[in-house]
Amino acid sequence: MSAPVLDGTFPHTWKAEILSARPVILPARHYVYPRDVEEVERGALELLVRTNEPGAAPFLATCALGFRDPVVPTGVWSAPNPREMCAVAGGYAYIIDTAAPDRFTMLPFRPVLQVRPVVEQGLLLFVGNRTILAWAAAGTAWETKKLSDEGVTITGVEGEQLRGLGWNLITDKETPFTLDLQSGAQVR
Rank of each mutant, 00 (worst) to 15 (best):
S183R: 10
L162D: 12
I95V: 15
V119K: 15
G122T: 00
A138V: 04
G55M: 08
F10S: 08
P82C: 02
H12Y: 03
Y31W: 13
P27S: 13
L147A: 04
V76Y: 03
D7R: 10
D102V: 08
V37R: 09
K146H: 04
E174Y: 15
G91T: 07
Y94I: 04
V49M: 05
K146C: 04
Q161H: 15
K173R: 15
G8A: 13
K146L: 04
G156M: 12
R50N: 11
V157K: 09
P176K: 00
I154G: 01
A57T: 07
G75I: 02
G55T: 04
Y31H: 14
S2T: 08
Y31K: 03
S148P: 05
Q161M: 13
F59Y: 11
R103W: 06
R130V: 03
L107T: 00
P70Y: 02
H30A: 07
G166R: 11
L113K: 12
A16H: 01
L107K: 04
I154E: 01
T62L: 05
G156R: 10
C86Q: 01
V71W: 10
G75Y: 07
R29L: 08
A89T: 06
V88M: 09
N168A: 09
L60I: 05
P54Y: 08
A99K: 11
P54N: 07
L6H: 13
T178E: 10
D180V: 14
W167K: 12
S2M: 12
G66K: 07
G166S: 04
T51A: 06
A136P: 08
R35Y: 03
V32S: 13
D36Q: 08
G43A: 11
V71P: 06
G75D: 06
E17M: 08
A100D: 10
T155P: 12
E120P: 09
C63Q: 05
C63V: 11
E39K: 14
A28G: 06
L26Q: 00
R116A: 03
V32Y: 09
E120T: 11
L165I: 02
W167S: 03
F109V: 01
T9F: 11
A141I: 06
F177N: 07
S78H: 06
L107W: 09
E84M: 14
P82Q: 10
T13G: 00
A21L: 05
L60S: 05
L123C: 13
E41D: 00
V187I: 15
P34N: 06
T51S: 14
P117D: 00
Y31Q: 06
D180A: 14
V71N: 13
G156E: 02
D36S: 15
